[in-house]
Design a protein around this nucleic acid. Structure first.
Lengths: 334, 334
DNA sequence: CTGAAAGCGCTAACAA
DNA sequence: TTGTTAGCGCTTTCAG
């Protein structure tokens, strides 16, 4: 025999009250006489009643779930954000539908559409670039959106970030202060990455402010994979660079390991600053000097901001949150 | 003006057909005349109609979403599984609600209940131990469940794993073959971890089969954190151990780094084998010798198995999948 | 091949 | 404080 699902109606009948009253009890509505509330709870317990969130969602037009677009959960940068998002979501009684997008535009649009079809109350986007198509979808659906760890150049969408450009500039400044003249900038080969575009611009600016000339040979793009450390090393070995700033920790560790294998002394012969302070930065030997981003907080604040948007709170001071960071001078800088 | 949502009814009216027909078209039911199908699609396009999955879920009692319980997304072991899960889920048109449990029993039960309230079609559980309370919930809800990377000692619940005990035994065998007599076993301090219990038993057995005596001083429990590498080192330094098997990569890297800082030569003076082959194993220097688990596949196969269960397919050959593994003799073994 | 109609389980006015 | 009654938007028999 198929197990019969217990509905609000069963509880009402059994408790001798109306559905509405049961609904009130379940939803914590104070307008219920304590004695009937007690009785209802007893029946709920007895029947093992569990409210059907789908039915509730249809009736109330709220699902208490938010969609989260993430490039890749196995990426330590994004998983740290995701953790912050989920914790705050849980705190506010939301669940998250997590979907990997691989930074693929087609996939992002497709996933967003199924999230919207599922009537999520809000969306958190992590990625490299908001395409126009995505932006259009965001606008058409009246669903609140917050970007986490992702900059919107058009300043339209709510977002939580650090000042990536400024952080990179300071990284370069540090390397210049340490006496380096030839400083490379290494980033993922994804040309559409807005954060990296900001970093690249800042890199150039920082060089010029320090009286150094920008040379595009020193700008290196590689696929974001540990393996590519070798490729980066080969490129750098042909230059007379003495330092490099990496936008990606995994790439930085990959390079570091290869460099050391090749007898390069870090930081004596070569200095490195990386940008994300993911777990990897701590695990490498020597420990990577890095921009310390508040990764968990970026996610957490983004989710908090989203709750405000979903609640239509109007005291939202700023939709473009910029969190603080600092540079940690560890083992790969003098 | 609040944007009006377009419903199936609007499409029906506009296309001059009934809701039922629109529903058939949307769901790919073949019993629709091509010409009317075409017309309906045209209207859908024109009106920008998007089926409401919540309503659909209520009517059909299927949500095409599965719940995923994960201890912590930022843990590379679990995030690798999660990635496999999501990819296969996407392939079969499911979405995943991901919830971090921190291996906390209370939280697991609570989360499971909200997942069930949301009418997920299935659940994937990752964790350290199925408590009785959790098992009861699984049974009462008639929702299919698959354990990923988690052993059910009672062999009731469907699961996907490797043979953790056998892998550990082989690790010990390798270390013995390399001449080590005093081999430690280091694992997370969580006493409830079933996988580690299997490993511990196998550790003991392996020693005995190799004619070595088991000594509990060589069994070390530490919280699973990179920082604890120092604590592990201090404990091991007081023993005359020449090798250790770690159940956790992060702990292994932590120890390795501390050991090297203290002038220990690895693998000459001390050999290490770790168990998960997470990204970390590749990034450490020297590279960790490790049991190579097919992490992504464990997740992927678990999700595939779950789809079969949700479909009530009865040709499920085995609910307890055991995937192959091998040991990779890298830089921390001779 | 198509339509009518009865729910799915719950919320939210509106009355009382 | 409680009950009545419409829906929410869709699927799914059952007829035809």
């Amino acid at each position: 025999m198929e197990k019969q699902t217990v509905t609000i109606y069963d509880v009402a009948r059994e408790a001798g009250v109306s559905m509405a009253t049961v609904s009130r009890v379940v939803n914590g509505n104070p307008n219920v006489k304590p004695s009937t509330r007690k009785k209802v709870f007893a029946v709920i317990d007895e029947l093992n009643y569990r409210p059907n969130a789908v039915a509730r969602g249809l009736a109330s037009k709220k699902t208490t779930t938010v969609g989260v677009l993430i490039p890749d959960v196995t990426n330590l940068y994004y998983s740290a954000l995701a953790r912050g998002i989920d914790d705050i979501a849980t705190m506010y009684k939301y669940n998250i539908i997590l979907a990997n997008s691989d930074e693929n535009e087609q996939k992002e649009v497709k996933v967003l559409n199924t999230l919207l079809a599922k009537q999520v109350d809000g969306v958190i986007y992590m990625g490299t670039k908001i395409t126009d198509e995505l932006r259009d979808e965001f606008e058409r659906s009246r669903t609140p959106v917050v970007l986490a760890g992702t900059v919107d150049p058009q300043k339209e969408l709510a977002s939580v970030n650090i000042d990536y450009g400024k952080a990179l500039k300071q990284s370069v400044d540090l390397l210049v202060k340490n006496g380096n003249k030839n400083i490379a900038f290494v980033y993922k080969s994804d040309e559409e990455n807005v954060n990296d575009a900001l970093r690249l611009a800042a890199y150039r600016e920082a060089l010029e402010e320090n009286g150094l000339t920008y040379n595009e040979d020193y700008v290196i793009q590689e696929a974001n994979s540990y393996k590519n450390g070798q490729a980066v090393y080969d490129r750098l070995a042909n230059l007379d660079a003495t330092a490099a700033v990496f936008s990606d920790d995994e790439l930085a560790v990959g390079f570091l390991n290869v460099a050391i294998n090749n007898g390069l002394k870090v930081p004596e012969d070569f200095e490195i600053v990386t940008s994300n302070n993911s777990k990897l930065a701590k695990l490498s030997r020597p420990e990577l000097s890095t921009v310390v981003q508040p990764l968990y907080d970026i996610g957490a604040v983004a989710m908090r901001l989203l709750t405000k948007l979903m609640n239509k709170e109007d005291d939202i001071s700023d939709k473009h949150v910029v969190l603080p960071y600092h540079i940690d001078n560890k083992g790969t800088t003098k």
